[in-house]
Every structure is written in C-alpha cells, then in structure tokens.
C-alpha cells in the first residue's frame, strides 16, 4: 500500500476509491487474457485522476472494476472503506446508485425520460429526491434540491429541463450525464471516455465541467481517456500498459502526456521521459518495480 498512499500527497488523506492487487482474467486456459495484472492504485478524494494507456491496456477494465460494474478475479476494490468483493449484486447496485456516479462515452441517458428526470434518476430509483409521490412529468423541474439546482446552472441546461435526450446535441447530452453523475453527491464519479464522441469544443466544455466539479465543489473524478488533451484537465494521470500500472504524472499537460504515450509506442520504457512525475504503483511486480524507482521523483 505504499504506492497507494503515496499518491495522496497533495490533498488530505481521504481515499475515494482504490484497488489493491487487482487481477482480472477473461476466459480460461489457452485463451485466457490478463486484462489487469496486479494493480495497486488509489484515487484520492477531491482529485481529478485520469487513467491513460493504449488500447487493450486494461484502463476501461480497471475503471469498471473500481466502480463496481465488474468484479476482480483476485485482489480487492474499495469505494471509501467498502470492499466491493464482499457485496452481492443488490448491495453493489445500491452502492453504485448511492455512492458512485457514471459518465459513459455514449448512450448516457434514458431516451424516455426528460433531462430533469435523467438528472435525478439515481435518486428517483432510490425513492429519494423528488419523492415517490411526484414521479413523471410533474416532478421534472428538478429544482426541489438546491444542490441539483446549482448543478443545473453549472451545466447550463436550465432551459432544457423538459426536453428529451433526442432533442439535445451530443455535447448537451454529455453535460446532462455529468449533472446526473454528480446529482447524488457520490463519493466518486467515473467517466469512461466522456468526450470520445464529441467535437473538441463540446469536449472542452464537458472536461471543464468535470474540473470545476472537483476544484469548486470538492468532488472526486476518475476518468478513462486516450486523449492527451482530455488528460491534461486532470490533477494527475496514471498510465497503464498490458494490465499493469507503468507510470504516474502530476499536473499533466497535453504535450507531456503525448510524449509519454509516444514512449510506449516506441516500445521503450518510460525511463527516457525525463520530465515525468513518476511514482510507480507497480511495486508488487518485479518487472516494473525496478524500472520506475519506488522513491519519488520530483515534480
């Protein structure tokens, strides 16, 4: 857990989510694929963390397992202090509903519900928020909760509350998804390529929203992306390759991230990148453990 705790230096000691010794194997026998090959990582509260890596590096799998959408083959995943492996499907669902927010790449919204209803969906599913007595169109103003009211203003969709998702642009839809993700004040919001389907301007808006949520509202965001520009919005970036955590970068910029990624493409290890902010979390594995010294490198 050394590496994990070391990632929480900048702010407090609160941990929003973490995985320890995470191994995920798909298939069996000869066709078995180790999507996660022993990962320890901590996502500190109040931080915006990006997970990067080439296709097939396991970044989406890591997010799914950390968020309780998927289960680990071995190792443990925690949201706060709750170990996900101990939960049955129902309790896992309730945990996702109450303590985790999601923004997916596409298809984030239920087409039959209005914008307001989509935003309050997790709370409505819990029977909270608008309350059972006011389902349907009647409760779609979504303004009963000042937090949600504020969220609606932050994402700038006040005049769209009664619209259906089909009437919104892709960027607007993602903004609704962001509002939905934060609506229940979750411990952590997981975003899976949230800008993957957007043009750069809409993408920028969505990323700014995520950033503001973390910095101004003290929320926690974990984002999977392959876009260095997107990753640059994060407070820190962790790099995955072949199911292992290979690098870590604080206060990233698009250029630095891009360079780091190029290093993967060149087949060489991250060593060549002198500007890196590397505190490897792969300590449990000898191969990378020696590669990225376990003692901190200066920012």
């Amino acid at each position: 857990m050394n590496a994990a705790s070391s990632a929480t230096t900048t702010r407090g000691t609160r941990t929003a989510a973490r995985v320890a010794g995470a191994v995920k194997v798909y298939g069996a026998g000869d066709t078995a694929v180790r999507a996660l090959d022993g990962i320890d990582v901590t996502f500190p509260a109040g931080r915006f963390t990006a997970i990067m890596g080439p296709s097939g590096s396991g970044k989406s799998t890591l997010m799914h397992c950390a968020a309780g959408l998927d289960t680990l083959t071995s190792g443990a995943a925690f949201i706060g202090d709750t170990e996900l492996g101990t939960l049955d499907d129902r309790r896992l669902t309730l945990l996702r509903r109450d303590r985790v927010g999601f923004v997916f790449q596409v298809f984030n919204l239920v087409p039959t519900l209005t914008v307001a209803e989509n935003i309050t969906l997790p709370m409505d599913l819990a029977g909270r928020g608008r309350g059972r007595g006011r389902g349907g169109e009647g409760g779609s103003d979504g303004s009963s909760d000042p937090w949600i009211d504020a969220l609606v203003d932050v994402v700038g969709l006040r005049d769209r509350l009664r619209h259906r998702p089909a009437e919104l642009s892709g960027g607007q839809q993602q903004r609704v998804a962001v509002a939905r993700a934060f609506a229940g004040r979750p411990d952590v919001v997981f975003a899976d390529e949230p800008t993957g389907n957007l043009d750069s301007r809409s993408g920028e808006e969505v990323l700014n929203l995520l950033g503001r949520a973390v910095r101004q509202m003290d929320r926690t965001v974990v984002m999977v992306t392959h876009d260095p520009v997107a990753a640059a919005h994060a407070d820190e970036v962790v790099f995955l390759a072949d199911g292992r955590l290979v690098d870590h970068m604080e206060s990233p910029t698009a250029d630095r991230v891009l360079d780091r990624l190029k290093a993967f493409d060149n087949g060489s290890d991250a060593r060549s990148d002198g500007r890196r902010d590397s505190r490897s979390a792969g300590g449990s594995d000898g191969r990378f453990g020696s590669g990225f010294g376990s003692e901190g490198v200066m920012p």
Binding site: D89, R90, T93, R97, D98, L109, V110, P111, P122, L125
Partner: peptide, 16 residues
C-alpha cells in the same frame, strides 16, 4: 439492452 445496462449501472436494482 444498452438502456437497461445504463439503468443498472446508475443503480436500478434487478428487482426494479
């Protein structure tokens, strides 16, 4: 399918 998956992801229980 996708919509159901989304609902499940954001916290709709199986019984719901």
């Amino acid at each position: 399918t996708r919509e159901l998956g989304l609902l499940r992801a954001v916290g709709q229980t199986r019984s719901q």
